[in-house]
Design a protein around this nucleic acid. Structure first.
Lengths: 223, 223
DNA sequence: CAGATTCATGACAGTTGCGTGACAAAAACG
DNA sequence: CGTTTTTGTCACGCAACTGTCATGAATCTG
């Protein structure tokens, strides 16, 4: 899921944006000042940042500069001011786009998508690490203690699904639904594939450390 | 010098934009229709393209799609229509930005700069090396262990597409889409061309080291 | 403790995915 | 216009994968 951070001091506007973004399928969270925004982004890096220009304390321009200092995240200015000078200054400061409030959420969403398309092209492959287990969804590659392991498509999908919800239990029904697309079916099928997956990714398949069974509940992937 | 191509059918607006862009220090040239624009861009590739949506013949959306088919040049839509639906559609088609006419030249210039900053970061290096395999996209040349190899156009495009996303899996669907422009089609077509490509670039085509198959997922190019 | 659940695992047959060679249509070339 | 090259389609065969089942172990329940 794509995380979007909204830095905007007006509570109503911020909440409206957050709600609309969530509606569009983003994981959205907010900050009421530049300082808070910078802090939150440091704790939990966003994939996109929306920022207002008129902020109490540190203003939007300075906020953008500070973000840009050590991050390449796509930044969109959402401002009420339709002023060439502001637009130029914001873009010069390092913003990627500038939209005028009020903005249609569909447009905003499309602009965010276009930006991420650009940003992603340059980004290296992302890897999820679970101790000695490394998963790179984009490269279609899984490593155990650095050694590449060959997984079948179903095993790979299953692992990705579990990794996506790392630390959380997924029932066999949920897995059937998400990995196989079955609305109904034999839950034993999941067991079999979990077993095969364990043979490949666990040091001791009989005593799994990552892919553990929660009797009566389902399976989960942990560190 | 940065070259900007302006695709706009209204003579006055096009000339005004060209003059203003030259004032800003760009090398600007124009086209009065999508067809002419595509042709001119092919002859003399621009660093940025401005395009109007309402064009005689091929419309702006289609123009964008055709440009995107084999180029990653930053595209800005300059339109009189302030309509969310148009904006979303243009961005979906592959545009990077959308501004409403009339637009301040300073703003336009700043947006172009911001876009190029992104595009440059994402632009693939002209020569990519994968062990004994060297790809020079601009020169249209491929070498294996220093020896030049003759590829057909499709093989070359396929290789470039894979190289562009080096290390990442591309599904047959994605390749059909990106290399052939087919939205739908027989996926075996990809297999065949991958096979032919392997004959030319792999030391041992039966055991490929660079262009590897990920069963059920697709193909990827690696070092 | 006995019976009932729940899960792990090995075997197996049917299915799928992929590589390859052959061939005709289409395009490029001279 | 004929020749050569490239492209897309097809069919075949092998290897790998998938899903089902049976069996037995582990765990829960009363």
């Amino acid at each position: 899921m794509t995380a979007v951070l909204v830095i905007e001091d007006d509570d109503r506007i911020r909440l409206a944006l957050l709600l609309a973004l969530e509606e569009e399928g983003y994981a959205a969270y907010g900050a009421a000042s530049a300082e808070e925004g910078l802090r939150r982004h440091q704790q939990e890096p966003a994939d996109n940042i929306l920022v207002d220009l008129m902020l109490p304390g540190l203003d939007g321009f300075e906020c953008i500069r500070q973000l840009r200092r050590d991050d390449d995240v796509p930044i969109v200015v959402v401002s009420a001011r339709d002023d060439t000078h502001d637009i130029v200054a914001a873009l010069e400061a390092g913003a990627d786009d500038y939209v005028i409030k009020p903005v249609a959420i569909k447009e905003l969403s499309a602009r965010l998508r276009a930006l991420r398309r650009r940003a992603r092209a340059a980004s290296p492959v992302s890897v999820q690490v679970f101790g000695d287990l490394e998963i790179s969804a984009e490269a279609g590659e899984v490593r155990v203690s650095g050694r590449p392991v060959a997984l079948t498509r179903t095993e790979f999908r299953l692992l990705c699904e579990l990794a996506l919800h790392a630390g959380k239990v997924l029932s066999r029904q949920q897995l059937l639904q998400r990995v196989w697309g079955y609305d109904t079916g034999d839950e034993r099928l999941v067991d079999v594939h979990v077993g095969r997956l364990r043979q490949k990714i666990e040091q001791d398949p009989a005593n799994p450390r990552h892919l553990v069974t929660l009797r009566g509940l389902g399976y989960k992937l942990q560190r």
